[in-house]
Design a protein around this nucleic acid. Sequence first.
DNA 1: TACAACCTTGCCGTTTACGTAAACGTTATG
DNA 2: CATAACGTTTACGTAAACGGCAAGGTTGTA
Lengths: 166, 166
Amino acid sequence: MSIEVETPTGARLLKINEVATEVGLTARSIRYYEELGLLKPAARSEGAYRLYDADDVERLRFIRALRDDAGFSLAEIGRLLEDEAARARNRERFRTATDPAERRAALADALVRIDDQVAILREKEGRLRAMIAEAEGRRRHIAEHLADLDAGREPRHVHESGGVAR
Amino acid sequence: MSIEVETPTGARLLKINEVATEVGLTARSIRYYEELGLLKPAARSEGAYRLYDADDVERLRFIRALRDDAGFSLAEIGRLLEDEAARARNRERFRTATDPAERRAALADALVRIDDQVAILREKEGRLRAMIAEAEGRRRHIAEHLADLDAGREPRHVHESGGVAR
DNA sequence: TACAACCTTGCCGTTTACGTAAACGTTATG
DNA sequence: CATAACGTTTACGTAAACGGCAAGGTTGTA
């Protein structure tokens, strides 16, 4: 009996090592994330194999980026993405809603959550930019001293040899 | 006998808990960073108390920012800041150099290292910005669906309920 | 000089984020 | 239908980044 389960839209579902390769994680990490409630595979095979759809893959990619690029802890990521139970509820809520008002509400919720995510990412970006600005300040300071030296001028009061990076 | 050791420029040296409060770290963390070779206090008191100067404080602030704001591991921070032995060497090299060419070389080295730091921070910023852009893409996608719904139009093919954040 | 308030070096404990192996079930293929 | 190649759960192991003692020495002040 084949495992070739298909999603409603016809896309293939991936087994854990397939998604792992796809998104650049290990199967162990993915299972761990599930244990933490960060994501649940869209389905399980007859024999209990985890099966992931495109949406899961996207979520895993996002998790990885939040971890590697943004440097968030898994706990923070959990808060950012909300818990998996709510995700499943909202997913079903949208999929099965016959009432347009219901579907609208689900989308509106998703919008608010994304706005929160963007705000948090923007704040982090701001702090990073501040650090860069500071580092460039130190750079200018040193370059200035260097210029003074090259111009034969004596440094007035070299209070330090140049700040953090010596 | 007082501990009031003074730096060449007359500034007071701080004891570990004083710097800890100053930069927002714990004494334990600071000792751990020393153990990892991230920084060594400028001096020790007669009775072996750690004594930090303004330069150390600045370095600790930078370490903290790299950890909290940029999300680097202590190992990465170590690579970014180079090892403490080199720091001490270069510090002494600059302080004691009578020859301007020597001093120039020390400053030039510092400049190169800061440039590296800035480049690494910039790269991180780039990845963060990419994430933000992606999140905003998702946001637009959802907003569009929402607009369609509100306009009474039927969604053409709601392949998902909205991406990562549901 | 007595003493509280700090500091020192061990050293063991804890949380996070997985790695790794055991023992066993599942799936695709010849 | 045999079997290799994958998957499952369970559980113990580990590196990173500290927290928190204990046992003792140091410092500023009364």
